[in-house]
């Protein structure tokens, strides 16, 4: 069961469009935080570079808003999105 070690990463709205990515799967690793994952993704360059603080990015882990320091576990669903604009 290699999926046991997977973290699902989701993108919404402007980020989903600009990164041309709705969902990614990554391998969990000890000590990986949501903020560290953002930096790793930003390092891919191109449109991904904006994840490194150039634009505000909100973070949810398992559908609850959280801070970049949040450590990610296998099985987690982490989502990155722009500030919300509903209502």
């Amino acid at each position: 069961m290699t999926t046991d070690n997977t973290i699902v990463v989701k993108f919404f709205a402007r980020l989903r469009e600009e990164l041309d990515t709705a969902t990614l799967e990554i391998e969990a690793e000890p000590g990986l935080t949501a903020g560290r994952l953002l930096q790793d993704l930003a390092a891919k360059g191109g449109n991904w570079a904006q994840l490194d603080g150039a634009q505000p990015v909100m973070i949810a882990v398992n559908q609850v808003m959280t801070k970049p320091e949040k450590e990610l576990q296998a099985g987690d669903e982490v989502a990155f999105f722009p500030p919300v604009t509903g209502g």
Binding site: F12, A13, R14, E17, F81, P82, P83, T85, G86, G87
Partner: peptide, 26 residues
């Protein structure tokens, strides 16, 4: 509820014109 919904519920608006689209900023 209405005020908090606008800042914490994950909805995003995109404005549409005849020939372009634009994500609304908070």
């Amino acid at each position: 509820i209405m005020d908090a919904l606008k800042t914490s519920a994950p909805f995003w608006k995109k404005e549409i014109t005849g020939d372009s689209e634009h994500w609304v900023e908070q």
